[in-house]
Nucleic acid binder design. Structure first.
Lengths: 219, 219
DNA sequence: TAGATTGTTAATCGATTAACAATC
DNA sequence: TAGATTGTTAATCGATTAACAATC
């Protein structure tokens, strides 16, 4: 159990810290102060120090933070060395893109199985992995015990599938179907990804931008 | 210009309201109270009423909200009827998935051009649209004046490309390259999407779950 | 009218920022 | 030592929740 409950806002910033520190390390930067890091990330130095001190004192007064050491600490906190067994269900356009585009090992995940309910897709090879038919999920899970499932299935199939997977022992869902998964049992973790929501904030921004004539003429 | 500046937290909830109201409408629900909607969405009724009242009084005391009318209002606020001219650059796995998977018109966007720098990709047809070579971007933008660009290019290509596009008049970026775009000029809108960040919050959750033995044994 | 539910103000809570003593 | 920068406490700010009068 961690010291205290860490707030979601802090947790959501951790991957970003990890990313920036990785870039700094790649550039050969050895040390960095919270002030300089805040400048580069567009945060305040206070916030960075507060965030990090949720987990421990990783810096040194008068010196700052060692880039590599801090990155490693954050990686540990995130659990990126955990090799969580992960399966992906639904190999349409999006599923295939996720399978090939996301760096799973950098996220602490091992992608060990691909599944699709379409018999013309099952059997094919994608990214050097064979796609299994969803009918074989039960047996696969009994044997491999995956912890995390990525859902790239149609909206109407997601809830039923997820329930089944929970009964097979899956404890976390990265859900790209347009549904809103939710489990009473909050031992089951869910990230509902709605890409369109992110695009719509741009649509909103464009409409409410003072530069914009369309919006102006509408009011 | 809108009444007051709306907070980003409210704006980010709008697409979600829109989505839920759409589902309710599809189910034939005519009216809904903030209380019932809050139950279904996992929010508080207070928050819903506060959020909506940023934009106007869309309800009726003693009755609640008309589902369709409210949905239309939120759609207007988001600007989903704007037909923003949109281009997508980079038709690798992810670019192709975005092009085919996202419902652009529902987001107020018209996807009018696909571009790739690879001459073997340029010329091909994707989703019934011809892919142009990135060399033709300048001319295309002069002619069509797209407002929004979706970047599915490699990290190292994103910043330079984005700068060029701004000079061509593009005012908003949906950025899937692993870079962090940022413009001093805050008339340029940016949504940096880092899919892996979302996955990592699950990794974190699995590691800090009390059920988890790996994490326990590490402390 | 009575009941329901909004719109809105006030209270609370949490997250961010500022300040500064501790210390490398 | 002097300077820099952390870790941490206190102050501020903003967002969420609660309460209730207005009103359909």
């Amino acid at each position: 159990m961690s010291k205290q409950e860490i707030s979601p806002s802090v947790i959501r910033r951790l991957p970003r810290y990890h990313r920036f520190l990785g870039e700094l390390a790649a550039q050969g930067t050895i040390r960095i102060s919270s002030k300089e890091l805040s400048r580069q990330m567009g945060l305040t130095a206070s916030q960075i120090r507060q965030d990090l001190n949720c987990f421990g004192g990783f810096g040194q007064q008068g010196y700052g933070y060692n880039v590599c050491a801090l990155r490693d600490e954050i990686g540990q906190i995130l659990g990126i060395h955990a090799h969580r067994k992960t399966i992906l269900i639904g190999l349409g356009n999006l599923g295939r893109a996720i399978a090939s585009h996301v760096n799973f090992s950098q996220c602490g995940c091992d992608l060990i199985g691909l599944f699709d309910s379409n018999p013309f897709v099952a059997g094919r090879d994608i990214e050097g992995m064979q796609v299994h038919h969803t009918d074989t999920l039960s047996g696969f899970c009994r044997q491999e015990s995956p912890e995390l499932a990525i859902l790239c299935v149609p909206e109407n199939a997601a809830a039923e599938l997820a329930n089944k997977l929970v009964s097979f022992g899956v404890r976390a869902f990265w859900n790209f179907s347009h549904s809103n998964l939710h489990f009473e049992d909050d031992a089951v973790l869910v990230e509902n990804v709605h890409l369109a929501d992110s695009l719509m904030t741009l649509t909103y921004g464009l409409s409410h931008d003072s530069m914009d004539e369309t919006a102006d003429s509408l009011r």
